[in-house]
Amino acid sequence: MTAARAAADILHRAPGHRPRVGIVLGSGLGGIADRIAGSVAIPYGELPGFPVPSVSGHAGRLVVGTLGGVEVACMQGRVHAYEGNGFDALKTAVRSLKLAGCDTLVLTAAAGSLRLEVGPGRLMAISDHLNLLGSNPLTGPNDEAFGERFPSMTDAWDPELRALLKEVAADRGIDLAEGVYAAYPGPSFETPAEVRMMRLLGADAVGMSTVPECIVARHCGLRVVGCAVVTNLGVGLGDGPVDHHQTLTAASAAAADLERLLVGFLERLHQKDGSRS
């Protein structure tokens, strides 16, 4: 099993570490991995079956260490459906984090806001999702070793963990919105008509990732919490064109707030663990 070999390699390459929380950093957010203490960085290309990103803003390495007092395995970059390589590598990466010891997955992403009152630079806790990719990472034979054929997506984005995220944001003065994330196939940006459609369907933000990781994570029993960094208003809602350079620039500018939020979230998890021991 490729995921088992990757998990064994992770633990071998990072002796003394047993990650409890997996983190996936989206476009322009990879600098957060630099805060991880006692870190061991492993290029994706050196882990069996791991994805190798082809998009700028995604470093393509796994950083294992401690953040906020919690042992983490941080994916510094991800692959997307539009890169054309299917979901096998994504499944291997998420499942290897589970096998390496993680019980929670934190997903981050750059996204366009579909709400005028939630503009660039804001953070949005993900409460639910719309899978508009036209595909599902669990398509094909089911691997019973990880989960059942028809996993439930009710509360896929863990309400308890999201409440903790909101609690930390309030304590630290971080302006955290909340909403539904729509996964759009890309790589072209959405048309104004598609933005209007997604708003009618109940989406609050749109991006080209994140939902596949959530589906795979829930299938194998990981709890999931997510936060989108708003980099722009959806096409047709704001002034000027939308491009990837703008996405990276805006994500980098908001990364400080996301870092404070994630570190505080992990510290609060660490405190809760201590109170149970």
Rank of each mutant, 00 (worst) to 15 (best):
R149E: 11
P151N: 05
V21F: 01
V168Q: 12
S252K: 15
E178T: 10
C102A: 15
P48T: 10
Q246P: 09
D243L: 02
D143K: 01
L138A: 00
V216M: 12
L200D: 13
R95W: 06
V211E: 03
C214A: 15
L258I: 00
P159G: 03
R223Q: 08
G28D: 06
V52N: 13
D175S: 14
H129V: 03
G134M: 05
E83H: 08
G57C: 01
I174S: 10
C102T: 11
A217T: 09
S27E: 01
V118M: 00
G49K: 02
S39D: 12
S209H: 07
G186R: 05
L97V: 11
P185M: 11
V211Q: 07
D88C: 07
A217W: 04
R149S: 11
L99D: 06
L47D: 08
E71V: 14
A33M: 01
E167K: 14
G134N: 05
A6M: 12
H129L: 03
M124T: 01
S39N: 06
R172W: 10
R260P: 07
L164E: 14
L161I: 10
G68Q: 00
A256E: 12
G240C: 08
K272A: 15
G264N: 07
D103H: 13
T154I: 15
A111W: 10
L116C: 00
V94E: 04
H58D: 05
S252L: 14
A6P: 04
T210A: 10
A169N: 10
G86C: 04
F150K: 07
T154D: 07
H12E: 15
R115F: 10
V230W: 04
L67I: 10
T247E: 05
A93R: 04
A41V: 05
G179Q: 09
P120V: 07
C220H: 08
Q271Y: 13
G112D: 02
D155C: 07
V40M: 04
L29G: 02
G49C: 00
C102D: 11
V63K: 04
L269W: 12
V168W: 13
Q76G: 01
H245R: 09
L164P: 09
G45K: 09
S113N: 01
R35M: 15
A163H: 08
D243P: 12
L161Y: 11
H219K: 03
S96D: 02
T210P: 09
A255D: 02
T231E: 01
L200G: 14
L25I: 00
I42V: 14
P212F: 11
E194R: 09
E117W: 02
T66W: 09
I36Q: 05
M198A: 11
L105A: 01
D257N: 12
Y44A: 08
G119R: 15
A228F: 02
L107F: 02
H270Q: 12
P151R: 02
H245Y: 03
A170E: 15
G16A: 14
T92R: 01
L248S: 06
T108K: 01
L164A: 14
L25N: 00
D257M: 07
